[in-house]
Protein backbone atom coordinates (compact mmCIF):
# COMPACT_ATOMS: atom_id res chain seq x y z
CA UNK A 1 0.00 0.00 0.00
CA UNK A 2 1.41 3.40 -0.98
CA UNK A 3 -0.06 6.20 1.06
CA UNK A 4 0.50 9.92 0.51
CA UNK A 5 -0.43 12.45 3.16
CA UNK A 6 -0.61 16.21 2.63
CA UNK A 7 0.51 18.40 5.51
CA UNK A 8 0.37 22.16 5.36
CA UNK A 9 2.82 24.42 7.15
CA UNK A 10 0.18 26.87 8.34
CA UNK A 11 0.55 30.30 9.89
CA UNK A 12 -0.04 30.04 13.62
CA UNK A 13 -3.01 32.36 14.11
CA UNK A 14 -2.37 32.67 17.86
CA UNK A 15 1.10 34.14 17.24
CA UNK A 16 0.17 36.45 14.39
CA UNK A 17 1.26 40.06 15.01
CA UNK A 18 -0.35 43.26 13.79
CA UNK A 19 1.86 45.67 11.86
CA UNK A 20 1.45 49.23 10.54
CA UNK A 21 -2.00 50.09 9.17
CA UNK A 22 -3.57 47.11 10.92
CA UNK A 23 -2.00 44.68 8.49
CA UNK A 24 -0.94 41.25 9.75
CA UNK A 25 2.81 40.64 9.69
CA UNK A 26 3.10 37.57 7.46
CA UNK A 27 6.82 37.90 6.73
CA UNK A 28 8.55 35.51 9.10
CA UNK A 29 5.29 34.74 10.95
CA UNK A 30 5.35 31.71 13.23
CA UNK A 31 3.94 28.56 11.61
CA UNK A 32 2.83 25.13 12.80
CA UNK A 33 1.47 21.95 11.24
CA UNK A 34 -2.09 22.62 10.18
CA UNK A 35 -3.90 21.10 13.18
CA UNK A 36 -6.17 18.53 11.51
CA UNK A 37 -3.37 17.35 9.22
CA UNK A 38 -2.08 15.42 12.23
CA UNK A 39 -5.29 13.39 12.04
CA UNK A 40 -4.49 12.69 8.37
CA UNK A 41 -0.95 11.55 9.28
CA UNK A 42 -2.30 9.38 12.10
CA UNK A 43 -4.78 7.72 9.72
CA UNK A 44 -2.00 7.10 7.18
CA UNK A 45 0.11 5.41 9.86
CA UNK A 46 -2.81 3.22 10.93
CA UNK A 47 -3.36 2.17 7.30
CA UNK A 48 0.31 1.26 7.02
CA UNK A 49 0.27 -0.86 10.14
CA UNK A 50 -2.85 -2.69 8.91
CA UNK A 51 -1.80 -3.12 5.29
CA UNK A 52 1.97 -2.63 5.18
CA UNK A 53 3.63 -0.27 2.74
CA UNK A 54 4.94 3.25 2.77
CA UNK A 55 3.75 6.68 3.98
CA UNK A 56 5.08 9.71 2.12
CA UNK A 57 4.32 13.21 3.45
CA UNK A 58 3.99 16.13 1.01
CA UNK A 59 4.09 19.81 1.73
CA UNK A 60 4.07 22.88 -0.48
CA UNK A 61 5.52 25.96 1.16
CA UNK A 62 8.58 27.93 2.03
CA UNK A 63 11.88 26.39 3.19
CA UNK A 64 10.51 26.73 6.74
CA UNK A 65 7.82 24.15 5.87
CA UNK A 66 10.48 21.48 6.40
CA UNK A 67 9.55 21.76 10.10
CA UNK A 68 6.03 20.53 9.49
CA UNK A 69 7.34 17.66 7.38
CA UNK A 70 9.67 16.76 10.25
CA UNK A 71 6.69 16.54 12.55
CA UNK A 72 4.97 14.11 10.20
CA UNK A 73 8.21 12.11 10.03
CA UNK A 74 8.50 12.10 13.82
CA UNK A 75 4.98 10.75 14.08
CA UNK A 76 6.08 7.92 11.79
CA UNK A 77 5.90 8.84 8.10
CA UNK A 78 8.69 7.17 6.10
CA UNK A 79 9.86 10.11 4.03
CA UNK A 80 8.93 13.59 2.95
CA UNK A 81 8.66 15.68 -0.19
CA UNK A 82 9.02 19.44 0.16
CA UNK A 83 7.98 21.60 -2.78
CA UNK A 84 9.61 24.94 -2.20
CA UNK A 85 7.69 27.87 -3.60
CA UNK A 86 5.94 30.87 -2.24
CA UNK A 87 4.33 30.71 1.19
CA UNK A 88 0.98 28.94 0.97
CA UNK A 89 -1.47 31.22 -0.85
CA UNK A 90 -5.20 31.63 -1.20
CA UNK A 91 -5.11 30.22 -4.72
CA UNK A 92 -6.40 26.77 -3.85
CA UNK A 93 -6.43 25.60 -7.47
CA UNK A 94 -2.78 26.41 -7.90
CA UNK A 95 -1.88 24.68 -4.61
CA UNK A 96 -3.82 21.56 -5.59
CA UNK A 97 -2.20 21.36 -9.03
CA UNK A 98 1.24 21.76 -7.44
CA UNK A 99 0.62 18.95 -4.93
CA UNK A 100 -0.72 16.79 -7.78
CA UNK A 101 2.42 17.35 -9.82
CA UNK A 102 4.64 16.40 -6.87
CA UNK A 103 2.56 13.32 -6.07
CA UNK A 104 2.64 12.17 -9.70
CA UNK A 105 6.40 12.59 -9.77
CA UNK A 106 6.65 10.13 -6.87
CA UNK A 107 4.71 7.47 -8.73
CA UNK A 108 1.36 5.84 -8.11
CA UNK A 109 -0.38 6.03 -4.73
CA UNK A 110 -3.32 3.98 -3.52
CA UNK A 111 -4.57 6.57 -1.07
CA UNK A 112 -3.89 10.30 -0.68
CA UNK A 113 -4.95 11.72 2.68
CA UNK A 114 -5.71 15.35 3.50
CA UNK A 115 -7.66 17.01 6.28
CA UNK A 116 -11.06 18.64 5.88
CA UNK A 117 -9.58 22.11 6.05
CA UNK A 118 -6.34 23.88 6.84
CA UNK A 119 -6.15 25.69 10.17
CA UNK A 120 -5.05 29.01 8.68
CA UNK A 121 -7.24 29.48 5.61
CA UNK A 122 -9.84 26.74 6.09
CA UNK A 123 -11.27 26.52 2.59
CA UNK A 124 -11.67 22.77 2.21
CA UNK A 125 -10.97 23.15 -1.48
CA UNK A 126 -7.51 21.72 -1.94
CA UNK A 127 -8.48 18.04 -1.41
CA UNK A 128 -11.27 17.82 -4.03
CA UNK A 129 -9.22 19.92 -6.46
CA UNK A 130 -6.28 17.60 -5.88
CA UNK A 131 -8.44 14.59 -6.78
CA UNK A 132 -9.55 16.40 -9.95
CA UNK A 133 -5.93 17.15 -10.87
CA UNK A 134 -4.87 13.55 -10.20
CA UNK A 135 -7.94 12.17 -11.97
CA UNK A 136 -8.82 9.93 -9.04
CA UNK A 137 -11.91 9.34 -6.92
CA UNK A 138 -12.55 11.66 -3.97
CA UNK A 139 -14.36 11.29 -0.67
CA UNK A 140 -14.56 14.21 1.78
CA UNK A 141 -15.16 14.50 5.54
CA UNK A 142 -14.27 10.92 6.47
CA UNK A 143 -14.63 9.80 10.06
CA UNK A 144 -13.94 6.14 9.29
CA UNK A 145 -12.05 4.52 6.41
CA UNK A 146 -11.85 0.81 5.61
CA UNK A 147 -9.63 -0.40 2.76
CA UNK A 148 -10.49 -3.70 1.14
CA UNK A 149 -10.15 -5.29 -2.28
CA UNK A 150 -9.06 -2.15 -4.08
CA UNK A 151 -11.91 -0.16 -2.60
CA UNK A 152 -12.28 2.34 0.19
CA UNK A 153 -15.41 2.18 2.28
CA UNK A 154 -15.83 5.52 3.99
CA UNK A 155 -18.18 6.96 6.56
CA UNK A 156 -18.76 10.65 5.82
CA UNK A 157 -19.78 13.07 8.52
CA UNK A 158 -22.05 15.76 7.06
CA UNK A 159 -24.01 18.56 8.74
CA UNK A 160 -27.31 16.74 8.98
CA UNK A 161 -26.51 13.19 7.96
CA UNK A 162 -23.96 10.40 8.00
CA UNK A 163 -23.26 8.66 4.70
CA UNK A 164 -21.50 5.45 3.90
CA UNK A 165 -19.90 5.45 0.46
CA UNK A 166 -17.59 3.20 -1.51
CA UNK A 167 -14.90 4.55 -3.80
CA UNK A 168 -12.41 2.77 -6.06
CA UNK A 169 -8.71 3.25 -5.29
CA UNK A 170 -6.66 5.27 -5.98
CA UNK A 171 -8.61 7.75 -3.95
CA UNK A 172 -8.10 11.12 -2.26
CA UNK A 173 -9.79 11.26 1.15
CA UNK A 174 -10.14 14.23 3.49
CA UNK A 175 -10.57 13.39 7.16
CA UNK A 176 -12.36 15.13 10.03
CA UNK A 177 -10.76 15.36 13.47
CA UNK A 178 -13.28 12.86 14.86
CA UNK A 179 -11.54 10.05 12.92
CA UNK A 180 -8.74 9.42 15.43
CA UNK A 181 -6.52 10.80 18.18
CA UNK A 182 -3.12 11.77 16.70
CA UNK A 183 -0.14 10.22 18.50
CA UNK A 184 2.55 12.29 20.17
CA UNK A 185 6.03 11.43 18.94
CA UNK A 186 8.56 10.40 21.59
CA UNK A 187 11.84 12.24 22.05
CA UNK A 188 13.66 9.41 20.28
CA UNK A 189 11.24 9.57 17.35
CA UNK A 190 11.75 13.32 17.10
CA UNK A 191 15.52 12.81 16.97
CA UNK A 192 15.26 9.99 14.43
CA UNK A 193 13.04 12.14 12.20
CA UNK A 194 16.05 14.27 11.24
CA UNK A 195 17.63 11.19 9.66
CA UNK A 196 14.64 10.34 7.48
CA UNK A 197 14.92 11.41 3.83
CA UNK A 198 13.30 14.64 2.68
CA UNK A 199 13.36 15.38 -1.03
CA UNK A 200 13.30 19.02 -1.95
CA UNK A 201 11.79 20.10 -5.29
CA UNK A 202 11.75 23.72 -6.46
CA UNK A 203 8.22 24.59 -7.56
CA UNK A 204 9.57 25.88 -10.86
CA UNK A 205 10.72 22.34 -11.73
CA UNK A 206 7.15 21.04 -11.67
CA UNK A 207 5.89 23.35 -14.46
CA UNK A 208 2.50 23.84 -12.83
CA UNK A 209 -0.25 25.46 -14.90
CA UNK A 210 -0.81 28.89 -13.29
CA UNK A 211 -4.50 28.77 -14.35
CA UNK A 212 -6.54 31.12 -16.49
CA UNK A 213 -6.91 33.67 -13.73
CA UNK A 214 -5.00 33.48 -10.47
CA UNK A 215 -6.59 34.39 -7.16
CA UNK A 216 -4.85 37.52 -5.89
CA UNK A 217 -4.79 38.99 -2.40
CA UNK A 218 -5.35 42.74 -2.59
CA UNK A 219 -5.05 43.47 1.10
CA UNK A 220 -5.42 42.13 4.61
CA UNK A 221 -6.46 43.72 7.85
CA UNK A 222 -6.54 42.45 11.41
CA UNK A 223 -10.03 42.51 12.90
CA UNK A 224 -10.52 44.55 16.01
CA UNK A 225 -13.21 43.85 18.55
CA UNK A 226 -15.09 46.66 20.24
CA UNK A 227 -16.42 44.78 23.24
CA UNK A 228 -16.87 46.60 26.56
CA UNK A 229 -14.64 44.16 28.50
CA UNK A 230 -16.14 44.97 31.89
CA UNK A 231 -15.07 42.56 34.62
CA UNK A 232 -17.79 42.21 37.25
CA UNK A 233 -16.29 41.83 40.73
CA UNK A 234 -17.73 40.30 43.87
CA UNK A 235 -18.84 36.93 45.17
CA UNK A 236 -21.10 34.72 43.01
CA UNK A 237 -24.39 36.23 44.29
CA UNK A 238 -23.21 39.84 44.02
CA UNK A 239 -21.68 39.33 40.60
CA UNK A 240 -24.80 37.56 39.34
CA UNK A 241 -27.05 40.39 40.57
CA UNK A 242 -24.83 43.05 38.97
CA UNK A 243 -24.72 41.10 35.72
CA UNK A 244 -28.52 40.88 35.56
CA UNK A 245 -28.72 44.65 36.13
CA UNK A 246 -26.36 45.29 33.23
CA UNK A 247 -28.19 42.89 30.94
CA UNK A 248 -31.46 44.54 31.84
CA UNK A 249 -29.99 47.91 30.81
CA UNK A 250 -28.75 46.38 27.56
CA UNK A 251 -32.29 45.22 26.90
CA UNK A 252 -31.30 41.64 26.14
CA UNK A 253 -33.35 39.91 28.83
CA UNK A 254 -36.81 38.80 27.87
Amino acid sequence: MRIAVCVKHAIDETELKTGPGGRPVLEGAACKVSVFDKNAVEEALRMRSAQGGEVVAFTIGSEDARKSLKEALAMGADRGVLVVGAQASLDTGRTARTIAAAVKKEGAFDVVLCSEGSSDTYSGQVPPMLAEALGTAYVGYARKIQLEGGKAKVERLLEDSVEEVEAPMPVVVSVVSEINEPRYPTLIQIMQASKKPVQEIPESQLAVDPGSSPVAVLGMSVQTSSRKRVIIEGGPEDAAAKLIQELEKEGVLR
Partner: peptide
Protein backbone atom coordinates in the same frame (compact mmCIF):
# COMPACT_ATOMS: atom_id res chain seq x y z
CA UNK B 1 -23.21 27.30 -0.48
CA UNK B 2 -20.14 26.35 1.59
CA UNK B 3 -21.71 23.31 3.20
CA UNK B 4 -19.53 20.20 3.40
CA UNK B 5 -20.92 18.87 0.12
CA UNK B 6 -21.03 22.36 -1.38
CA UNK B 7 -17.29 22.86 -0.90
CA UNK B 8 -16.64 19.71 -2.91
CA UNK B 9 -19.09 20.69 -5.64
CA UNK B 10 -17.57 24.17 -5.97
CA UNK B 11 -13.99 22.87 -6.05
CA UNK B 12 -14.77 20.26 -8.67
CA UNK B 13 -16.73 22.65 -10.89
CA UNK B 14 -13.89 25.18 -10.73
CA UNK B 15 -11.32 22.49 -11.56
CA UNK B 16 -13.37 21.09 -14.45
CA UNK B 17 -14.14 24.47 -15.99
CA UNK B 18 -10.63 25.78 -15.29
CA UNK B 19 -12.12 28.75 -13.41
CA UNK B 20 -10.68 30.36 -10.29
CA UNK B 21 -12.49 29.72 -7.02
CA UNK B 22 -12.95 32.17 -4.13
CA UNK B 23 -13.99 30.64 -0.85
CA UNK B 24 -16.17 31.80 2.05
Amino acid sequence: GATRNGREVASRVAARLGWPCLSE
